[in-house]
């Protein structure tokens, strides 16, 4: 067993230090960099907590099929592919930009 605190705890604690202690002490031109560090830590935390992504499909093949119109409206596969793409985008946005999902 690894010694505690674990990665998630360390990252969350480090983020608090960046926002609460470092950011107010920094010159204004460095505030954006500090906020980016906090955002990166938050993102890494969400990614480590997210369920593992197993791509149920060959994405390269699917991309090629879509381009050639194989899943256009009116085809049998259209609704199923649309549903897969929604899940695919939602799962990634949940880590990268959860606010966007509302």
């Amino acid at each position: 067993m690894q010694e505690k605190p674990d990665a998630a705890d360390l990252l969350a604690t480090a983020r608090e230090v960046v926002l609460a202690e470092l950011l107010p002490a920094l010159p204004p031109e460095k505030a954006v960099a500090a906020r980016m560090v906090a955002a990166a830590i938050a993102l890494a935390l969400r990614q480590s907590a997210a369920p593992p992504m197993t791509d149920a499909r060959d994405l390269a093949m699917l991309a090629g099929e879509i381009r050639t119109g194989l899943h256009d409206p009116g085809t049998e596969s259209h609704a199923e592919v649309a549903g897969f793409l929604r899940d695919h985008a939602r799962a990634r946005a949940a880590v990268s930009a959860p606010k966007a999902l509302g």
């Binding site: 960099a33 980016m36 560090v37 955002a39 990166a40 993102l43 649309a82 793409l85 929604r86 985008a89 939602r90 990634r92 946005a93 880590v95 990268s96 930009a97 966007a100 999902l101």
Partner: peptide, 22 residues
Amino acid sequence: LELALTGHMVPELEWDVLAMAE
């Protein structure tokens, strides 16, 4: 770091793309 974080805008944009295409 800025370029790295910019890459993480892609899923949100994709989410919008699906709604707009629909």
